[in-house]
């Protein structure tokens, strides 16, 4: 590895010191590379707040739009092509290109940034909500209807609760995506944690690495929090049903061995 010095690779000791410097940047403020400005440590907090704010606003608006739409389409069983292909299209459009497109056509700023992030967040939530509603057993819906539930009652008491785990799966995907993409917020005029990463001439390589570590931790935290939320909103009866099916699956593991030894 030491030989890679030419293209920026460095030895283990230097490597450690780089990371050490980065961690130091996260916890203690210092003068900027260009001088005159204090950076790092507590000066990162406004960026963190902005990062979370931009992500939360975008995710919130995306949920408010995509969940009702997904429920509605799923309940009616219409628009399957739209609801499902929207996530394929969403994946094919790179978030960076999308942001650049917003900058080129609408300019920079918090609102435009959140527009782009909302667009980014909608597809997984919409598709998951749609699929979540559609995968509710038709017999359950039939039984609900047969007992005299109206369309809204069926959505509220059967389709929505049963689809919740999947819906939250979509929200979780989008949340992580949005937090990750908010990192390039400074390119669109919102000073998020991506600022030290992108403006390394001001923050230095320690700032670049330190902020990268912070963004990574933030994304992982988001994932963990939303995974916990997803678990929390899964009705107990559904967890039991899922447990029943996994235990059934486990059941044939020993059987397999019996076959292969015979």
């Amino acid at each position: 590895m030491d030989t890679g010095g030419a293209n920026g690779m460095i030895g283990p000791l230097a490597l450690l010191s780089q990371f050490n410097d980065a961690i130091n940047f996260i916890f203690h403020s210092r003068d900027s590379v260009t001088g005159g400005v204090r950076i790092g440590g507590s000066h990162l907090l406004p960026m963190l707040a902005r990062h979370v704010e931009l992500s939360a606003v975008s995710l919130g608006v995306a949920c408010a739009l995509a969940i009702p739409l997904g429920l509605w389409l799923g309940h009616l069983g219409r628009g399957q092509l739209v609801a499902v292909s929207v996530s394929n299209v969403g994946r094919a459009v790179p978030s960076f290109a999308l942001l650049a497109f917003f900058v080129a056509y609408l300019g920079t700023g918090f609102t435009n940034a959140s527009f782009a992030l909302i667009l980014l967040a909608i597809p997984p939530i919409l598709t998951n909500t749609y699929v979540g509603v559609r995968q509710v057993d038709r017999e359950i819906v039939d039984a609900a209807r047969g007992q005299g539930m109206t369309g809204w009652e069926i959505v509220r008491s059967a389709e929505l609760p049963i689809a919740l785990p999947l819906i939250f799966g979509g929200v979780r995907t989008s949340a992580v995506n949005v937090v990750a993409t908010a990192t390039i917020g400074p390119l669109i005029g919102v000073v998020t944690l991506g600022d030290p990463i992108i403006n390394s001439s001001v923050y230095g390589s320690a700032g670049q690495l330190g902020a990268s570590i912070m963004v990574a931790v933030l994304a992982l935290l988001t994932e963990v929090i939303f995974a916990a939320l997803q678990r929390a909103v899964t009705p107990k009866g559904l967890r039991l049903a899922a447990g029943a099916s996994t235990s059934r699956r486990r059941f044939w593991t020993p059987k397999r061995r019996a076959y292969s030894t015979s």
Binding site: D137, E139, A143, A144, I162, P235, G237
Partner: peptide
């Protein structure tokens, strides 16, 4: 109905 359609949740 045959499949009963109980609400699993």
């Amino acid at each position: 109905i045959q499949q009963i359609g109980l609400f699993p949740h």
